[in-house]
């Protein structure tokens, strides 16, 4: 028997901003021996949005996902999905979620179709709907022509798409994507993102994703920046970028010395000069530029605007770039956690 939640019938636009968050996390802590992987984090995710967990490897992203997916018990704290407790009502939580793990979890010796049918049985999809749902899912990810091929013949991007399709077959309310583009070539990555951003609208699903690629996190409605097991900032990408202080506008002029003075007095902005260019930080570069040109007139020769990236945000918040972190201690944290889990 399939239970159709009333949410299926409600347009997503109405759900957006509705009062009950689909994911609630309160004071979550997870320790592996003396390693604290997740250090007292709290956040909420609204239904129908794309929520991103951004941080370097070993920051605690996958551990948090595993707890939310009921694969791991927290040391302390509370996690609710669709109002169900991840520990005491794990079965209800499992029905409400779909997951695409970091490493593929397909059976490579089965065909694409068989992998999805397996999933449909496992989630008790009604027999009468099974075939149609699987076919639709395969068409949706553009793999219908390859449905009878063994998965081991698929490329990395195809596998990932198949996994997303599989994760949607039982019509979950939340779809977890753990580093969904890891190991994919740039083109497959772009394709996958275009596809993922259509999911909330087309499938009435909330996306919870993790990534350590800054540019990928930009598709999120809200982002939690996580480092060393703690959330250090949580907001929309636009708001997060404001932490950096806005856009950097640089101009070249016919007379840098006078123009610089004029800008400092008229606009009350700090200006610096480098390589014959004048630099200033505006909260909104797009409105700042026309004003500059109106004031300075023909003395302006060229204008350049640099939008802050999430990389700048991470740098500002932690004092390090995410790539630096990647090569330092984080891999050893992951190794220690693995070794710990093997022993217990």
């Amino acid at each position: 028997m399939e239970i159709i939640t009333p949410y299926d019938k409600i347009p997503r636009s109405l759900l957006r901003g509705s009062s009950l968050p689909i994911i609630q996390v309160e004071n979550l802590v997870k320790k592996f021996g003396n390693i604290t992987a997740v250090d007292d984090i709290s956040f909420e995710v609204e239904e129908g949005t794309i929520f991103g967990f951004l941080g370097p490897n070993g920051a605690g992203k996958t551990t948090t996902i595993n707890i939310l997916c009921t694969l791991l018990s927290p040391t302390s704290g509370r996690t609710l999905i669709a109002g169900h407790d991840c520990i005491s009502e794990s079965s209800e939580v499992r029905k409400a979620i779909g997951i695409v793990f970091q490493d593929t979890t397909l059976d490579k010796d089965l065909t694409a179709y068989e992998n999805l049918i397996f999933h449909a049985y496992l989630y008790n999809v009604p027999k009468s709907e099974m075939k149609k749902r699987v076919d639709d899912a395969l068409k949706f990810v553009d793999l219908y022509d390859r449905k009878d091929d063994l998965v081991k013949k698929f490329s990395g991007g195809m596998k990932r798409r198949l996994e997303v399709a599989r994760g949607l077959i039982h019509r979950p309310r939340v779809l977890f994507l753990d580093e969904p583009t890891l190991g994919l070539d740039p083109q497959s990555r772009t394709n996958l993102w275009e596809f993922i951003t259509t999911l909330p609208e087309k499938h009435n699903v909330t996306i919870f994703m993790t990534t350590h690629y800054m540019e990928e996190a930009e598709v999120c409605d809200r982002i939690a920046v996580i480092d060393n097991g703690k959330i250090i900032a949580i907001d929309s990408p636009e708001e997060l970028k404001k932490i950096v202080g806005g856009d950097v506008v640089s101009i070249t002029t016919t007379d840098n010395v006078h123009v610089r003075k004029e800008i400092e007095t008229v606009f009350k902005m700090g200006v610096s000069e480098k390589n014959d260019e004048l630099y200033m930080t505006c909260t909104r570069g797009d409105t700042c530029i026309p004003e500059l040109i109106r004031t300075l007139g023909e003395r302006v020769l060229s204008v350049r605007i640099q939008r802050p990236t999430l990389n700048d945000v991470f740098l500002k918040l932690t004092g390090k770039t995410i790539r630096e972190e990647e090569t330092s201690g984080s891999d050893s944290v992951r190794e220690s956690i693995r070794a710990y889990r093997r022993r217990h």
Binding site: C69, R94, T104, T105, K108, L122, N124, R166
Partner: peptide, 14 residues
Amino acid sequence: EFGFMKEILVAPVS
């Protein structure tokens, strides 16, 4: 080893 067990373990199955 190949990850498929996770697919089974996160399913609403006892």
